[in-house]
Amino acid sequence: MERVPVLKIGDILLVSIQLDMEDQTALQLQEDLADRIVATGCHGVIIDITALDIVDSFVGRMLSTIAAISKVLDAETVVVGMRPAVAITLVELGLSLNGIRTALNVERGMELIAASREETDDWAVDLDEADPGQAATST
């Protein structure tokens, strides 16, 4: 069975889907990805679908599931590189991939994750500053 490689770049896991997804491949990918997120402690997942010609409801649901799993493990998922034809088809099918963030290419996706990490980091810092007593006790 073919497997989709999961690459680690800094704080981000990059998944580039280069083959047609079958049920088994998709399930394997979900499992691999969950394992890698936990093992590496990464906070961002980028799924590159530039090579996908067809995104049907099955692949759409797989993307949603991966996004949900990553979220539970505190990692942000961004789907990048969707082709115009694929986007048009999805819209015509009425699939809007709710809950998935998208970006035009891998670079933009990395920027997006970096930006959202900064926001949450800031929030954490603000919280620490606002309540230094709790921060002291927790350490």
Partner: peptide, 11 residues
């Protein structure tokens, strides 16, 4: 539809 498709692509 155009707007939603553009959003799916990340724009």
């Amino acid at each position: 539809k155009t707007v939603v498709a553009a959003r799916l692509m990340g724009a």
